[in-house]
Simulated scan of single mutants.
Amino acid sequence: MTFSKAIAIATFTLGTSVSTFAQTATPYQYGMDLDIDHVISVDAKATTGHASTATLTYRDSDGQVQKVSYIRPAINANQN
């Protein structure tokens, strides 16, 4: 394998991985059937308010990467 072929394969592989993660998240609705096989990441911004939006990125049982966004209460929101 030549160096240029190796670079082309690496670029194609990285490009498809990045485009997979660039998809927009589906807003979660109560009762949604989530097929979560492996959690990839949870992106939740730290806030001082009462709630924030978090995004769960996961791989389903078919191997497809999915994203779902949901409302997450702040850690200190329910503290007495």
Rank of each mutant, 00 (worst) to 15 (best):
T53I: 11
R72N: 06
G49Q: 08
Q64A: 13
T57W: 01
A54D: 03
V39G: 04
T47L: 00
H50R: 11
K45F: 00
D62H: 12
A54F: 01
L56S: 05
D37V: 01
V39R: 08
V65F: 10
Q64G: 06
K67G: 06
V39P: 07
K67V: 02
T57M: 10
I71N: 10
A46K: 14
A51K: 03
D37W: 04
T47F: 00
S69A: 11
Y58D: 04
H38A: 10
K45L: 02
Q66K: 15
H50A: 08
G63K: 09
D62W: 04
I36H: 05
I71E: 12
I71P: 04
Y70N: 00
L56Y: 05
V68W: 01
G49N: 09
V39I: 15
G63Y: 09
I36K: 07
S61L: 02
K67F: 01
T48C: 07
A44R: 12
D62G: 06
S41Q: 13
V42E: 12
K45R: 12
L56E: 04
D35K: 10
H38R: 14
T47H: 05
V42M: 10
R59C: 05
R72Y: 00
D43A: 13
T53C: 00
Y70S: 00
V42R: 12
Q64D: 12
H38E: 15
V68L: 02
V42G: 03
S69K: 13
S41W: 01
R59A: 13
S41M: 09
A46F: 06
S69M: 08
A46N: 13
K67E: 02
H50N: 12
D37G: 09
G49P: 11
Q64W: 07
S41H: 09
A44I: 05
Y70D: 00
G63W: 07
I71Q: 12
T57K: 07
A54Q: 05
K67H: 15
D60T: 08
R59H: 03
H50M: 07
T57S: 14
Q66P: 08
I71R: 13
G63I: 09
A46L: 09
Q66S: 05
A44D: 05
G49R: 08
I36L: 02
D43G: 04
